[in-house]
Amino acid sequence: MSNTSTKEIVVCDDVKKWFGDFQALRGVSTTVREGEVVVIIGPSGSGKSTWIRCINRLEVHQEGRIVVDGIELTSDVKNIEKIRSEVGMVFQSFNLFPHLTVLQNITLAQTWVRKRPKSEAEAKAMSLLERVGIPEQATKYPGQLSGGQQQRVALARSLAMDPRIMLFDEPTSALDPEMIKEVLDAMKELARSGMTMLVVTHEMGFARDVADRVVFMDQGQVVEEGTPEHFFTDPQHERTKLFLSQIL
């Protein structure tokens, strides 16, 4: 999108991460500017999810630097909760809280983490439910909603915290084709509003329409990155060409 500023909000420098002996990230370096929409694609096992989960420290990287909004993520970051509350995340499996209603799912962190009064939190939750198109579901429990509705509630839950960055970890992979569109539409609307977004997805249409930049990963490293035009019409690396030839 065009409203990208020059402020660097996420900086990754040679990030490495191992699970046991297996190296999931083999030195990822890239920079995300404020308001930018970055779509990360690649085959499964290429380290896409691991990388964005390192950005809000759900996974702990072992080497390299990650700087989020000016704060470097190290083991002595005292207020990791503070950083996380600025970085929203939407998961593949929604992860709504099944014992709470939709409204409570969205107000809980607002009242306990952001310390907002209950009335304000509820007003915010309702306006976000309007925005994602399901205000009538507020009093239901997550188990009573369809997958697409659940994922939109999860999006509203993250947005209620007024995050500066949004991470999406394959948000449409667990959804029926008809529901994918409703979630993607909500994400497109969010991208237009100027949110900084890092999106791991297999939706090439979304990448082409919305991304400012596409990052292609394989074997724990960035193989190629560039604008969607460059990426889909003129890929350079052999691995990228192979990947695109298989999915398009």
Binding site: R84, N95, A109, W112, V113
Partner: peptide, 25 residues
């Protein structure tokens, strides 16, 4: 595990996560 991750991603502290999310369930 997703419940813990969702709670953490929202910025909850360990105590809040336990009292509000995991223990009730």
């Amino acid at each position: 595990k997703g419940q813990y991750e969702a709670a953490k991603a929202l910025g909850m502290t360990t105590a809040q996560m336990t009292m509000l999310i995991t223990l009730p369930q």
